[in-house]
Design a protein around this nucleic acid. Structure first.
Length: 566
RNA sequence: GCGCCCGUAGCUCAGUCGGAUAGAGCAUCAGCCUUCUAAGCUGAGGGUCGCUGGUUCGAUUCCAGCCGGGCGCACCA
């Protein structure tokens, strides 16, 4: 509404010939850092200075003169030093925020600029060779949050897990389990080099031994090994699904690499590229000319031994995604794969798309701490902390919140002790508690026979206290946070915002009364207690409901529960 | 060596499509106190935004070069 007024002022001034710039810069209004600078500030005057050949201050003056509805909308309009335009809006406008939250409910903050665009978010995609570890957990939380963020701004989104169920890793899995299987049968065997050493491998071997107890004796070793591979794979995939679902994450689709190979999609795709001169043979191998699209060098797709490289099936896989009609592909990868981005973006370009058609979100490692002390993990000995262990210890909500607290590109310190603490030192608890605390207000209100009015039934004009207006202002910022979060694929902005909102709520709650004291309670003669009229109670209840709604909306986007009580 | 990411308070990190005195939490210090839901509340100190140049009316933000950390540079996935 204020932006419209500003735009009106600019256009009005242009009509009168006071301004001549062709197209206005995008008008951004942000909340200034200091309260005395008003509610909203604009820097348009300064950014127009060069194209108008006028002093910023004069331009600001012109804008102010042309502001429509100046009296109705603004309490105060100020021009400060270089050319800041500081606007203090009428408190009545803030009431609109509460009405909007109430009427839009769960939709408050959402947008539809993604309308009509289909997006596929591929995430986790861990090899089905063992349980998920903590790093996968972070990728899972980030992926899910991005799916929901993109949905919230109107995209049609699907989450997909790409299963690497073909190739070397599977063979190693099978061989490792088979070796353990043989050991269980009393044979001395050499364990495969680069095999999987984890205890879970032996556990799988044991189960397989039981399952096959009748028929194992009659099977050829090769068949047995195949059996081991297939059964182990199935078990691992089930394990992964279970782990993910205990994190509250489910995928719309699971895409099998083996199925892709079986459909001969890889051959087709390579033929296609070949016919367009994008493949060439050299030193007995087949190469993709990715350097033609900005990659630093060309890449092998088919090795001299006739095997396809991982890249070959990845090209086919991404080609498949494009053919399924997605307008945007988002891949969530471990940060150690960053070098892979140029060649996959080359694939996009090879198919005539801009490289931005594929957006890769990188997720850095998680460093686990317990009470400030690092929990050492060693891949070599197979003693790593699984995602399951973390969820069992701290709970899915806390795990997700922590995974989403930082920019995914940076290393994350995750303190298990802190994450399970039920104190305000624990950010998850702090935010959820804000929500639960408001729920408890409804319970107490009911006990005391206080009705919780709709915004139309309450006189919101009594919300004039700086703490009240501060909360409302924060609530009004939510849509922009959500939308920025979505368009930059950065869920951590949401967790940060929620912590700030929760902090304001707790401060407010500690300082101000919302409900009148219970009748039987002594009124205490300390005169410093602020006067609480039924009108004020009603308005504050409306405010509290809005805060609760926004916290719930934010947590929901992040896939975290908003408990009624804790 | 080349490429990508990171470098902001003692610690963990936000912020930055260039904007006004750089923010939060933890820790530290100083008070207060047991409250509608309670595991506390209020306040204070703390910074050459890695360094050096450049562009600009204005740079923590953009550019270049350096320093430090991580990762990647396979006919592995």
């Amino acid at each position: 509404m204020v932006t419209i007024a500003l735009l009106g002022a600019l256009n009005g001034a242009k009509k009168k010939g006071q301004l001549k710039t062709e197209t206005w810069p995008t008008l951004t209004l942000d909340a200034p850092k200091r309260p005395e600078w008003g509610d909203l500030a604009s820097t348009v005057a300064m950014s127009l200075a060069s194209s108008e050949h006028k002093a910023p201050h004069d331009i600001a003056q012109i804008i102010v003169e042309n502001l429509p509805q100046r009296e109705e909308l603004f309490e105060r309009v100020e021009i400060v030093r270089p050319g800041f335009l500081n606007l203090t809006v009428k408190p009545t406008l803030w009431q609109e925020v509460l009405r909007a939250i109430e009427s839009q409910g769960a939709a408050y903050g959402k947008a539809d600029f993604g309308r009509g665009r289909r997006v596929l978010v591929e995430y986790v995609s861990a090899n089905p060779t063992g349980p998920l570890h903590v790093g996968h957990g972070r990728g899972a939380a980030v992926g899910q949050a991005i799916v929901r963020l993109l949905e919230a701004v109107g995209h049609e989104v699907a989450g997909e897990y790409y299963i690497n169920d073909a190739g070397r890793q599977m063979k190693l899995l099978g061989a490792s389990v088979y070796a353990r299987f043989q050991e269980l049968s009393g044979m001395k065997v050499e364990f495969p080099e680069d095999g999987y050493h984890g205890a879970y491998i032996t556990a799988v071997a044991e189960r397989i031994k039981q399952q096959l107890s009748d028929t194992a004796g009659e099977m050829a070793p090769a068949d047995l090994e195949t059996q081991c591979r297939v059964l182990a794979y199935q078990e691992m995939l089930r394990l992964i699904r279970d782990d993910l679902s205990s994190l509250g994450i489910d995928f719309q689709s699971w895409f099998s690499e083996a199925a892709l190979l079986e459909s001969r999609a890889v051959e087709q795709v390579l033929d296609e590229l070949k016919s367009r001169g994008l493949l060439f043979e050299q030193e007995g191998a087949l190469w993709f000319r990715s350097s033609a699209f900005g990659d630093e060098k060309d890449r092998v797709v088919k090795k001299h031994d006739g095997e396809y490289t991982y890249l070959a099936s990845d090209i086919a896989y991404h080609r498949d995604k494009l053919q399924r009609g997605y307008d945007l592909l988002v891949d969530v990868w471990g940060a150690d794969h960053h070098g892979y981005i140029p060649r996959m973006q080359a694939v996009m370009q090879a198919y005539g798309h801009p490289k931005e058609r594929l957006h890769v979100v990188l997720v850095q490692l998680v460093k686990l701490l317990r009470g400030g002390v690092e929990v050492k993990m060693s891949k070599r000995t197979g003693s790593f902390i699984t995602m399951r262990e973390v969820i069992d210890e701290v709970g899915a909500d806390a795990a997700k919140f922590y995974f989403l607290m930082r920019d995914s590109r940076t290393h994350l310190d995750f303190d298990l002790e802190l994450a399970k603490q039920r104190s305000t030192d624990n950010p998850v608890y702090y935010v959820q508690y804000a929500h639960a605390r408001i729920s408890s207000l409804w319970r107490v209100a009911a006990e005391r026979g206080v009705a919780c009015p709709q915004s139309t039934e309450a006189d919101l004009a009594v919300l004039t206290d700086p703490d009240e207006l501060g909360l409302i202002r924060k609530l009004s910022a939510y849509p922009e946070i959500l939308q920025t979060s979505a368009s930059t694929f950065e869920p951590h902005r949401m967790t940060y915002y929620l912590q700030q909102l929760a902090a304001l709520l707790h401060m407010f709650y500690n300082k101000h009364r919302i409900l009148p004291p219970a009748v039987e309670q002594e009124q205490g003669d300390g005169g410093a207690i602020e006067e609480l009229t039924p009108k004020k109670t009603a308005a504050r209840l409306v405010l509290m409901r809005s805060v609760q709604q926004v916290i719930r909306n934010g947590l929901t986007v992040l896939g975290i529960s908003a408990p009624e009580q804790m």
